[in-house]
């Protein structure tokens, strides 16, 4: 057993243990539906963790991911509602935009030798604040609550957007 892999084994053991504890309380947690839901509901977390791994490997940290998740959600919704573009085009747009956002943060961190923690903190404010300041976004207070609570068809957990 490679001792350098020990943290990985410990992590897996904790996961299995936690799952077992849940199973003792709620036996249905082993059903494919719940397992599938767990995978679906935490997809955004897993995807963000992949990116975060690369960032932390290089000695930095990215605090802005949560806000960027929220930003891209609002951006896609507003674009689909107002622009009439094909969803795939909007997806490409949002990917390009958020990648450019990350690149700009990286440029500041590398070019000006600023701490990653602080740069991505400012990025977090920016990404969290920018969707609400778009002139064409209805402000939350004027949106009828029925529109907010209406769920889109299909499973679309929006937990990344909420805190």
């Amino acid at each position: 057993m490679n001792p350098r892999r020990l943290p990985l084994y410990v992590t897996i053991a904790i996961f299995v243990l936690a799952f077992l504890l849940c199973w003792l309380q709620f036996p249905r947690i082993l059903s494919t539906r719940v397992v599938g839901n767990l995978l679906t509901d935490n997809a955004y977390l897993g995807i963000a963790a992949v990116g975060m791994t690369v960032v932390i490997l290089s000695g930095g940290i990215d605090l802005s991911v949560g806000s960027v998740i929220a930003f891209s959600g609002v951006f896609i919704a507003v674009m689909l509602r107002d622009s009439g573009l094909h969803p795939m085009v909007v997806f490409l747009l949002v990917l390009a935009l958020t990648t450019a956002f990350g690149a700009a943060q990286g440029a500041l961190i590398h070019g000006l030798a600023m701490p990653a923690f602080i740069v991505t903190l400012a990025g977090m404010f920016l990404a969290r604040g920018s969707p609400t300041s778009w002139p064409w976004t209805p402000s939350p207070s004027t949106t009828p609550s029925s529109r907010l609570s209406r769920r889109p068809t299909g499973s679309c957990p929006a937990r990344g957007a909420s805190r």
Binding site: A122, G123, F125, L126, R128, G129, S130, T132, S133, S139
Partner: peptide, 8 residues
């Protein structure tokens, strides 16, 4: 709604 953007 501009608070966070200006602060950033």
């Amino acid at each position: 709604e501009f608070n966070l953007v200006i602060k950033a």
